[in-house]
Design a binder for these strands. Structure first.
Length: 352
DNA sequence: AACTCGTGGTC
DNA sequence: TGACCAAGAGT
């Protein structure tokens, strides 16, 4: 087994030169890097998110806001609505805060890992990735792909998250001085297309001859992960209030679940979670079915009730807006409430 | 350190 | 079909 720096990095970069994925935010291997704005935007969108899910959002954002200065002057409302459906909405809030900070400093991103790390929404991974890919700095880029590849390459079996320290040390040891951005992207391509979580394709792997886990015959055993906690089931209510072809929408608080997003009024299920809360009107409410949705650490059954009357004076005491039904797509509802809206507009029924 | 924070695809 | 998973960050 020769997992030395030179052998691994050369084999991987050769493979990347021949097999790099062609992605909208990426330059061809060996050509000048893309604008830092595009690298940064793509990396934030790709946090815990698949390439397939990001592509359309990346195209929409770069078309509507072609530069960090353009994004910096966008409204919170427009950016949050444009992010709707992509998830992890704190990313969108930090994205805008970061754009405004960069714009205030002349529109140029810091060109060092340390400088990037100080910006909102850039943690250890994203700061290293932008430094390496956009600025061609040597940086140790460790995401879930790199963790998997490195854990297998060296058969590191200390369970995550504790095992991340040893993985980072090994990743550092095989990261080259030159082309560290290509090296990082090569590791991620390898993890995404060859060294996959399930059923890795070791016959196609440029590092197979260097890989301890492959030699052991059980690459899928790595990386070892700590067992996960069970997801509790929560219940809640949401309220569809419709009058004159408009529906009453609210904006959720700036932090916490779906923070800053437009939404249907609900019973505070995020805190109460037993479906016992009241709506913003006295009613009468008519049941419209229920919506099931699974979040990261709990599942939710949302009972939807509808009010179609015109006694809406009490809504004046609440923050909210009458939104035209024919433009509901533009409201930027997160998926949970988009499901509920679909249910309300389809009449009574159920949606799993 | 452990917890919060979305979504859609895969098997 | 439920459990796992994905270019993690903030607290």
């Amino acid at each position: 087994m020769d997992a030395s720096f030179d052998a691994v990095s050369r084999a991987l970069l050769d493979w990347y030169d021949a097999h790099a994925r062609d992605l909208p935010w990426r330059a061809r291997p060996g050509t000048p890097p893309p604008e830092p704005y595009r690298v940064w935007l793509s990396e934030v969108m790709l946090q815990q998110t698949t390439v397939a899910a990001v592509k359309d959002y990346f195209a929409a954002f770069t078309s509507r806001w072609p530069s960090v200065e353009a994004l910096a002057v966008a409204s919170d409302e427009d950016v949050m609505a444009a992010w709707a459906g992509l998830g992890y909405y704190a990313r969108a809030r930090n994205l805008l805060a970061c754009a405004r900070e960069v714009a205030a400093n002349g529109g140029r991103f810091p060109d060092t890992e340390e400088g990037l790390r100080a910006l909102p929404g850039l943690g250890a991974y994203t700061a290293a990735a932008v430094a390496a890919i956009a600025f061609e700095r040597r940086a140790v880029v460790v995401d879930a792909n790199v963790e998997r590849v490195v854990a297998r390459l060296f058969a590191l079996d200390e369970p995550l998250p504790g095992g991340r320290t040893a993985i980072r040390e090994r990743a550092d040891a095989i990261t080259p001085q030159a082309r560290s951005g290509d090296f990082a992207q090569a590791m991620m391509d390898l993890g995404a297309t060859v060294c996959t979580s399930r059923a890795p394709r070791c016959l196609l792997c440029p590092l197979a001859s260097h890989c301890t886990a492959q030699a052991m015959g059980e690459p899928e055993r790595f990386p070892v992960k700590a067992p996960k906690k069970a997801k509790p089931a929560r219940r809640g209510r949401a309220f569809w209030i419709e009058r004159d072809e408009h529906v009453w929408l609210v904006r959720r608080p700036g932090k916490g679940m779906l923070g800053g997003m437009r939404a249907l009024p609900d019973d505070g299920w995020n805190a109460r979670a037993d479906g016992s809360g009241d709506g913003p009107l006295a009613g009468p409410w008519e049941s419209a079915g229920k919506v099931g949705h699974v979040f990261t650490h709990f599942s939710l059954e949302l009972n939807l009730t509808v009010y179609l009357g015109d006694q809406c004076d009490s809504l004046a005491r609440h923050e909210g807006e009458w939104w035209p039904l024919e433009q509901l797509d533009a409201a930027g509802l997160p998926t949970l409430f988009a499901k509920a809206a679909r249910l309300a507009l389809a009449g009574t029924g159920e949606e799993a």
